[in-house]
């Protein structure tokens, strides 16, 4: 059982505030992804959980035990690093067995566990090699196997796939997800790649400027972003925004159109995902700027009321640069944000 609780964690580097009052609970055996642009504090948070960095304030609990004063080796964690950190002076076998040898396990137990995890990661053929003789993908597998062999309560991963090429990344993504689900460990996975986050996570914590903006399931984060940042960060292309002015009685004026919305009196931002737009008789008037055929879809970049606006349309449509489209937003997919707080408005 390894539930992780992060309570009021803050981190300052000199005068720079890297993390602000982070509160997060990760369930036992959950796959949590920390997602954010570089510099958002996600790696710092991971390193605080690992014990490689000390929090300025706050507490970290793993499996009901407060660990923030303990060194990394006493926290019941294992970590996979971005650059793999495979020890170059040891063979693959000794790399995977390194942690087990530190625990002074008997030789046959070390051998059994190394061979089992090497089998899981399909590197049983490489046990006698040194890291200099391995490819990037193989080193990645060694690093994961080394962490799994520890049979840790928690496995921490810092952008483990970012140094692999695109094809290998896709392959490893599925494989990692399978292996980790099998191993019953709690996993925290740091990435800036939203596709990785969406495809692997049970839950995603979106981080921005040292804060967790939203922690929810991938679909929830995608459909109901808690803030404009999340809406603009997740999804490719991201959500469209347009200013909306109240027209009274839950009605809103968006680019000259009257739409239903929340009953508020201050101006809001109207938001819609590009794939939730359909050409129709009434709707937002959009002047087409660029048309990009993507096979299954057309990505149409247009201008609505002077603002940049993207739509993902069926590729059967004939759309040309300079055309004017009338795009109707799917009513149940429209979201509203308060421009003052940037938070979502129900």
């Amino acid at each position: 059982m390894a539930e992780i609780q992060i309570k009021n964690v803050a981190k300052r580097f000199g005068s720079y505030q890297a993390l602000h009052d982070i509160n997060l609970t990760i369930q036992d055996q959950e796959f949590m992804v920390l997602l954010g642009a570089s510099g958002c504090g996600k790696t710092t948070l991971l390193r605080i959980i690992a014990g490689l960095e000390t929090a300025t304030e706050g507490e970290v609990w793993i499996g009901g035990r407060r660990v923030d004063h303990l060194p990394p080796k006493d926290r019941g964690i294992a970590m996979v690093f971005q650059n793999y950190a495979v020890f170059p002076h040891l063979t693959v076998f000794e790399n995977i067995g390194f942690g087990l040898r530190m625990q002074k396990l008997p030789n046959d137990e070390v051998k059994r566990r190394v061979e089992r995890t090497a089998g899981l990661m399909h590197i049983d053929q490489l046990l006698g090699r040194y890291s200099g003789e391995l490819s990037g993908g193989q080193r990645q597998r060694v690093a994961v196997a080394r962490a799994l062999a520890m049979e840790p309560d928690v496995i921490l991963m810092d952008e483990p796939l970012s140094n692999l090429d695109a094809l290998l990344r896709m392959e490893m993504r599925a494989e990692l997800k399978g292996v980790l689900a099998e191993s019953n460990t709690t996993a925290i996975y740091v990435t800036h790649d939203q596709v990785e986050a969406m495809s692997m996570a049970d839950r995603i914590s979106v981080m921005h400027q040292g804060k967790i903006v939203q922690a929810a399931s991938p679909i929830e984060v995608y459909r109901n972003p808690a803030a404009e940042f999340v809406a603009g960060f997740i999804g490719n292309p991201p959500m469209n925004f347009l200013p909306a002015t109240p027209a009274g009685d839950g009605k809103w004026t968006v680019a000259g159109q009257i739409l239903d919305g929340p009953s508020r009196t201050t101006p809001l931002h109207f938001a819609i995902r590009p794939e939730d737009l359909r050409p129709a008789d009434t709707g937002l008037a959009a002047t087409v700027k660029v048309v990009e055929p993507l096979g299954a879809h057309l990505l149409v970049t247009c201008s609505v009321d002077g603002a940049l606006f993207r739509a993902v349309l069926d590729s059967d449509l004939t759309v040309r640069r300079g055309d004017t489209l009338t795009l109707a937003p799917q009513p149940d997919r429209v979201r509203w944000f308060d421009p003052e707080t940037t938070l979502a408005v129900a």
């Binding site: 490689l52 060194p71 990394p72 170059p88 002076h89 080394r146 520890m150």
Partner: peptide, 24 residues
């Protein structure tokens, strides 16, 4: 990162130095 990896795998600062940095 090599030293840090050693720390997470059960080493103290000293054993990480003797088992990883020193041989290298």
């Amino acid at each position: 990162e090599l030293e840090e990896a050693a720390w997470t795998l059960g080493c103290t600062r000293l054993t990480a130095f003797t088992k990883v940095v020193l041989p290298l």
